[in-house]
């Protein structure tokens, strides 16, 4: 098992597609170096669902589209020294933010009542207490909590993630090389 002296890294996917987490895996054989360098706290990578202590770095994929996203993001802010927005959804809301100029009810009616192939004779919109309430619009993470560092891209290149994480963990300034700063 890992030694407790290693810096701890937490990651999560809020309103994202997990593409950015796929891009983390794209660092290929450097995953071994990463495993030597850090210990993963709460993350989909180890499937830990809760924080059990402070973390050096928290990496957020996706923006905030529902109340649960906001709670998780605030929890990350509370437990992480440095919070990183990873990918376009975390930075500008991404594809989910395309609903931002439409009323929420219109989106729900389109999805559950009006779309071709829908079978919903009772005309019910999902409102179970187990389902997190949707926000009226999708927020980028830095409009909800303080974010310290951004890695753009959809998804960000694996090298951009690697360079940023290594710089943060070694206390160096984070600068993305020109060819690693991408919005697509």
């Amino acid at each position: 098992m890992s030694t407790p002296s290693k810096p701890r890294v937490a990651t999560t996917s809020l309103c994202g597609c997990f593409g950015c987490h796929m891009s983390i895996l794209d660092i290929d054989e450097r995953l071994f170096a990463l495993a030597d360098l850090v210990e993963f706290a709460r993350s989909p990578i180890n499937d830990y669902k809760e924080f059990d202590g402070r973390c050096a770095v928290g990496i957020i994929e996706g923006g905030c589209c529902n109340e649960e996203n906001v709670h998780v993001l605030e929890d990350f802010r509370k437990h992480c020294n440095i919070l990183v927005s990873m990918g376009e959804c975390a930075i500008n809301g991404g594809i989910p933010a395309m609903r931002n100029n439409l009323p929420l009810r219109e989106c729900l009616e389109e999805a559950y009542l009006k779309s071709p192939g829908i079978w919903n004779p009772a005309g019910i919109l999902p409102n179970d207490i187990e389902i997190p309430l949707l926000l009226h619009r999708v927020y980028p993470c830095h409009e909800v909590v303080k974010i310290d560092c951004f890695i753009p891209g959809c998804p960000p290149p694996a090298d951009a993630i690697w360079d940023t994480v290594v710089a943060l963990l070694t206390g160096k300034p984070v600068t993305l090389a020109y060819e690693r700063l991408k919005y697509d």
Binding site: I91, E143, I151
Partner: peptide
């Protein structure tokens, strides 16, 4: 924006209906 190294805008998004 790439040339100026912008990673995230410093202002809130307006998301206009266009």
């Amino acid at each position: 924006a790439y040339r100026f190294g912008i990673t995230a805008p410093q202002y809130p998004f307006l998301n206009p209906d266009r």
